[in-house]
Design a protein around this nucleic acid. Structure first.
Lengths: 203, 203
DNA sequence: ACCACGAAATGACGAATGTCATGGGTCGCG
DNA sequence: CGCGACCCATGACATTCGTCATTTCGTGGT
């Protein structure tokens, strides 16, 4: 039937993937025509098959949901993308929207919201949580590229020396970047800075 | 029908909860008779209703899945509990088993594993991933109560002084505990120690 | 009664960290 | 062109952190 909506579902946790598929299949005009455990596999599937909507998680190995969204829409501009994630991070949300996603939903949201978002995406509408959108524009990433790199290394507890080694910088320069990031984020040390930046979705 | 298996499903993310319910309902001798978003709500439900099996996530607000498991089995020793989680942490696994859980499954596992674990739990069997069990016994928590407390505070980047304040200790004592934990875990600083302990499920 | 052990503290020392001033270099923009 | 950003580095300094030796105190075990 021409009114059936065909869906490619991408989610790394196998049990959750199967569960979401079962949920979507309960709508009788939805058809889950393919599933994939990560972005790489999803792109391979798309090379050989057709789908109306791509429903994807963000946190995945290989190629995350945001990279997948951008790559998939480059290949097929008419494909609608619904992003589904655990985290209400402004950075993620912003990246998703600028990659051409049609909707950004939290796994905390009701199942009905996913169903209606999929239907709305088909008609070309964008589904955005107003709270999330407001936070996203009011809270832009203040970090430079280098500060982000250094914070990522510092997250696991690496020493300044180890970070300098990893990035090919001097130890003093690393300390400067960390100090700069600590100042921008108004926290007291590298660990707090890394934790905050991670929570905001800036890393 | 007397052979129907009644299930209480506990999971904080509403969409995942609905999805898992849809998945379980596809088995025609399973009936999801109740759902709850956290441990507290689950216990309230159990006060008024009956179920054969409790399927619960671990990471939840209010009362986590492990606490729920212990409390539920205290109230109803014949209730079977299937723990479902994202993390393969030895500490979680050990706590689950000593709380009387029948099964400990990862969300990475196939959906069929969940179904068969539920069936097996009814017959009194325990379903344990052999890899996880081996890791659990070979990797016991080496930390003392105080070391755990201090590491939990250190996770977010708190200074020794702030930790001392929070726990009512002197700053030097806090440094001693951290130093001890760092030594036991064979890492180089508090951030690495906290990250490792968290990954092992010891916090 | 004695011992072992964890909890708590103190003081001291070297190492790592955070801050600041200062010097460069590149690049895009008005 | 000059200006502002971001990038890279060095040196100096105070603070924080990690380590170690040592002491006190209470609890539980034998």
């Amino acid at each position: 039937m021409s009114t059936t909506i065909s869906i490619l579902l991408v989610e790394d946790q196998e049990m959750v993937r199967a569960a979401l598929a079962a949920l979507l299949e309960t709508e009788n005009d939805f058809a889950v025509v393919g599933t994939a455990p990560d972005g790489r596999a999803a792109l391979e599937w798309l090379a050989d098959h057709e789908a109306d909507v791509l429903v994807t998680d963000i946190e995945m190995p290989q190629l995350d949901g945001l990279q997948l969204c951008a790559a998939a829409r480059r290949a097929r501009p008419d494909l609608k993308v619904v992003i589904l994630t655990t985290f209400a991070r402004a950075g993620y949300f912003r990246r998703a929207m600028s990659s051409g996603a049609s909707a950004y939903l939290l796994k905390d949201a009701p199942a009905a919201a996913l169903v209606s978002a999929i239907r709305a995406s088909i008609t070309g509408q964008k589904v955005i949580d107003p709270q999330l959108a407001a936070e996203a524009w009011s809270d832009p990433d203040p970090l430079t590229h280098r500060e982000r790199q250094v914070l990522r290394q510092a997250e696991g507890g690496a020493s300044s020396e180890a970070i300098a080694e990893a990035l090919g910088l001097s130890e003093g320069t690393v300390r400067n970047y960390l100090s700069s990031a600590i100042g921008k984020l108004q926290v007291r040390n590298r660990a707090e800075a890394a934790a905050l930046a991670r929570a905001k979705g800036w890393l």
